[in-house]
Design a binder for these strands. Structure first.
Length: 363
DNA sequence: AACACGTGGTG
DNA sequence: TCACCAAGTGT
């Protein structure tokens, strides 16, 4: 399709879209002003995450870390806690790393040059375009899922939006749409249209300010676009976890490693249980190897399922007791249940925590 | 290029 | 119910 951007009266398209945006746009915490730090934080939080989910996290985050300096110097534990439950935790770890660089290399001012800002950890092509346009009014495209959905339909583009090459195709024709408008308004307007009208299912074409330019709408194929290859189903794993209590009534928790799944979050000790093996056996062997503890595993007390995008944990939680304390490694500690609020846990382990609190209350 | 990386909402 | 979706990036 060589006619991207043609067949459309761009001036009229811009006017219709921007007028609609002016009337319809939501009041959102990160739209209060154009502070590049606030815009940046919001864009990181909004990656693969709904606006409604982000709002409370954003407000809390800005209270705790109102400036790049505040975040750069903040206790990492507290930063993780601020992100607890939001998912994709590498986003915050990268954000804090990036903000430290902003403080050290740029005097705490978020760089407005594309090459500088793009080089920061966690800042990809979308985030760079979004922050530079929204905070600094740079005419940069910000191509996210909304933008690809809207323009796939406008131009009847059938390329798979999961491919990197497809994103570049959108970036190639969008600058023409950014001429003569405030980039901040235009980019947000397209995303707002995608979020509120040009939705994945049942798009509200009759309410669309640019329906007259939509090729997909004309052909009645708006529901078939954009084209996106479906992913394979996540694999299930059988897991066993322990709520291990010592003589003082403290619980054993463990911090996950720096990299990979749920990095740096805290959890109850757990292992994957290979097929056909007994869960208590695997668990007690794991605790002996990891901490040198001989532990009597009690009854299963809870089942918890943790669904990720690419994997599923089916966790069986066991009771266990230990009479004497042993030497723990640096990633593990004994805590009172009331102290758990200070640590960031994955959702599945928040559920385990909840159940423990209920059991304690019942005693 | 393909896959790892979370979670909660929805039709 | 369950597959799919949401303002993506790093490797």
């Amino acid at each position: 399709m060589q006619d991207d951007g043609k067949n459309v009266d761009i001036l009229d398209f811009q006017e219709n879209l921007l007028n609609w945006y002016e009337q319809t746009k939501r009041e959102l915490p990160w739209r209060k002003n154009q502070d590049p730090y606030r815009v940046w934080v919001s864009e990181i939080m909004l990656q693969q995450t709904k606006v409604d989910t982000v709002i409370p996290y954003f407000n809390q985050f800005m209270e705790w870390f109102p400036t790049p300096e505040a975040l750069a110097y903040a206790d990492e534990e507290k930063v993780m806690k601020a992100w607890e439950g939001l998912g994709y935790y590498s986003r915050v770890r990268n954000l804090q790393t990036a903000v430290k660089e902003v403080v050290e290399q740029y005097g705490g001012k978020v760089p407005s040059e594309k090459k500088d800002f793009s080089s920061l950890k966690g800042v990809g092509p979308y985030t760079a375009g979004a922050v530079l346009s929204i905070a600094y009014e740079k005419p940069e495209p910000a191509v996210d899922g909304n933008v690809m959905r809207v323009f796939s339909r406008i131009f009847n583009i059938t390329d798979d939006i999961g491919k990197a090459k497809t994103r570049k195709r959108f970036e190639a024709f969008l600058p023409e749409f950014l001429e003569g408008v405030r980039p901040s308004e235009f980019n947000q307007a397209v995303m707002e249209l995608g979020a509120l009208v040009c939705t994945p299912k049942s798009p509200g074409c009759l309410l669309c300010p640019v329906q007259e330019y939509c090729k997909a709408r004309k052909q009645g194929i708006q529901e078939e676009l954009p084209v996106k290859e479906k992913k394979k189903a996540p694999a299930a794993k059988d897991m066993a976890a322990v709520v291990l209590k010592n003589k003082e009534g403290k619980l054993l928790i463990h911090q996950r490693g720096e990299k990979g799944l749920l990095a740096k979050l805290w959890e109850f000790p757990n292992v994957e249980v290979p097929a056909k093996q007994s869960r208590p056996d695997v668990l007690s062997e794991f605790l002996t190897k990891e901490y040198g503890m001989n532990v009597e595993i009690g009854q299963p007390i809870q089942k918890v399922q943790h669904v990720f995008s690419h994997l599923i944990w089916n966790i069986t939680v066991f009771d266990a007791w230990i009479s004497e304390n042993t030497e723990l490694n640096d990633d593990a500690k004994w805590i009172l249940l009331e102290e758990a609020d200070e640590y960031a846990f994955p959702v599945s382990h928040q559920k385990i925590l909840e159940t423990q609190k209920e059991r304690e209350a019942a005693d």
